[in-house]
Design a protein around this nucleic acid. Structure first.
Ligand SMILES: [Mn+2]
Ligand SMILES: [Mn+2]
Ligand SMILES: [Mn+2]
Ligand SMILES: [Mn+2]
Lengths: 226, 226
DNA sequence: GTAAAAATTTTGAGTATTCAAAATTGTATG
DNA sequence: CATACAATTTTGAATACTCAAAATTTTTAC
């Protein structure tokens, strides 16, 4: 996880998005069009960049087939994600920013921190495993702690769970989660699920029950309490 | 000191160097060649950039005459310097980095912090007036606290002073200052000054006297104690 | 007061990144 | 299978930044 190569912020962002998207598609190959969409550039731009990344040995590229991170690319991607998530936690814990607003800050800072500063932040925070959204923080060596989750869209009814992770970065959505008292750490019970109406009725510990749409519920991941 | 305009890091660096250099030359006009030298680009590059800055209303430019910051340019420059110095102090005080190494970190981070994060850091540090090197931190409004200094190259002999500021960013020089116990805050007496040999004999409070060359002594600024 | 030296600007070109629009390829449909 | 459609790639051009080297202007020195 050294930062010897010195990739540009642009390249780091491509790698990071590539990594996140690969987690989805199970064969690992990502169409360039999808990469373009999530990086926010036109398809042609992504194709060009992918060829550059392939030259640098960061991705494998099959024209008209898709892209996939090489192990070098994955290593760099994990480094960026590690910086991003440590920064987010730092901003929330030490500078008292709201968890809904740290993502965009981290998006810029993740390209500007040295390994040394990151190590100090890691130490200051006590070598944390999860960021404010419950996302796992990759270790310096590249290892990512994995946890088994279920989402509120699929977990058992009438059983106690704890919100462990909210897979969203949109500030408005996160603020809603906060308003609804569904932030990570909260104990919840799903009281009902209406597949036809696509709604879930959730009751946060010692709070009135509330209704969520299925897509929103799917973004709230829970684990068994304890 | 809003960051509405969103200047590029490159432009911010030019403005900052311009500001620092202008402090020297009293007429305020800086030759493009000098700007080039301290930004670290070729003369032609500086000329090109200066024309761009002039278009943006950040500098006045007289071909073959020199450059000078406009008030808009100065406002931006002070913003960058403020960020730089607050970051340096933050890195030393909160993350425990050595004062000799924070300059280069700050050089990158100064372009990545939002106003909001900066405000939090400012608050956390208790709205400090000086950075770890004794350099004044411009206020958000643009005001820069000024102090009268003398340097060890010119101050009175056999009189007690306090080191207030070390005008250098070079890590090796700063480490030497530290080894010699001449960091800001130290009480010192100049015991002798030999203009022919260009040396100054300084005695830090309760330490043996030591010899400095005149150029080094000139970088160590002192004030009356109290 | 001209010739050499120094500083500055201009020119031509390269890298990194991007877009719009045209060309290509692969796929699905009838 | 031929055609239509979608995805992808290519092409041509733009912006931001940079350098090397040529051209120009100013300064200095004799
Ligand atoms: Mn994030
Ligand atoms: Mn980013
Ligand atoms: Mn500094
Ligand atoms: Mn800088």
């Amino acid at each position: 996880m050294s930062r010897s190569a010195e990739l540009t912020p642009t390249v780091e962002n491509y790698l990071k998005h590539l990594f996140h998207q690969q987690q989805q598609s199970p064969d690992g190959w990502l169409p360039t069009g999808r990469l373009a969409a999530c990086v926010g550039v036109t398809p042609g731009t992504a194709t060009t960049m992918v060829k550059t990344l392939a030259e640098a040995g960061l991705v494998d590229y099959e024209p008209r087939g898709g892209v996939r991170l090489t192990s070098a690319g994955e290593r760099h991607a994990l480094g960026v994600i590690r910086r991003h998530r440590l920064i987010e936690l730092f901003l929330v814990r030490e500078l008292d920013l709201d968890w809904s607003e740290v993502h965009d800050e981290a998006e810029r800072l993740e390209h500007a921190l040295s390994d040394k500063v990151l190590e100090r932040i890691d130490r200051l925070l006590g070598y944390p495993q999860f960021d404010p959204h419950g996302d796992p923080i990759p270790r310096a060596g590249g290892h990512v702690p994995t946890t088994e989750y279920q989402s509120l869209a699929e977990c058992a009814l009438h059983r106690a769970f704890v919100v462990a992770r909210v897979t969203a970065q949109d500030a408005v959505f996160l603020q809603m989660i906060q308003r609804l008292h569904l932030v990570p750490g909260t104990r919840v019970v799903v009281e009902a699920r209406d597949t036809a109406a696509q709604t879930v009725t959730v009751r946060p510990r010692s709070r009135p029950a509330l209704n969520l749409g299925l897509p929103a519920a799917a973004k709230i991941l829970v684990t068994a309490p304890g």
